[in-house]
């Protein structure tokens, strides 16, 4: 599965970056979400896959017994998922606001706002 998951991650990255490069606001948001999934899966895969053995210390034991999944990437991803939600919400609202104010879905029409004289 490691190989397969690596390929899936690659596809998600491709889709994410392709969408982020688009000019349509909504597509950029979708791209961000893809990138979030891709990054999470990358970290998860790099922590090595352990099938069906969560990082728990079983009742009655003092320490964890192999095999169990690597806990650190999981902790990283867990917060990343929630933070990703916050970022998504922010991005969605930001783009929505931009759309309202500029009246266009085209990112290129946003460019004048941060041009420096």
């Amino acid at each position: 599965m490691t190989l397969l998951l690596a390929i899936v991650t690659g596809i998600l990255f491709t889709a994410g970056f392709y969408l982020v490069l688009r000019r349509s606001l909504v597509k950029v948001i979708f791209g961000l979400m893809f990138l979030g999934h891709a990054a999470n899966l990358l970290i998860f895969n790099i922590g090595r896959l352990t099938k069906g053995a969560p990082a728990f210390i079983l009742e009655g034991n003092q320490t964890a017994v192999e095999p169990y999944a690597e806990p650190i990437p999981q902790a990283l991803i867990l917060t990343a998922i929630v933070i990703g939600f916050g970022v998504q919400a922010f991005a969605i609202v930001l783009f929505k606001k931009a759309y309202q104010m500029i009246g266009s879905d085209d990112i290129h029409s946003l460019k004048s706002t941060d041009r420096i004289a």
């Binding site: 990255f13 970056f17 688009r22 349509s24 085209d106």
Partner: peptide, 29 residues
Amino acid sequence: KLPKFLNYSKFSHRLQDFVLAALVGLTMT
């Protein structure tokens, strides 16, 4: 509240972007 999907970019741009994105994806894999 958001607009419909529109394609603003030219085909050549899209192709170029796709190649770049695919290369990055491959590197990641």
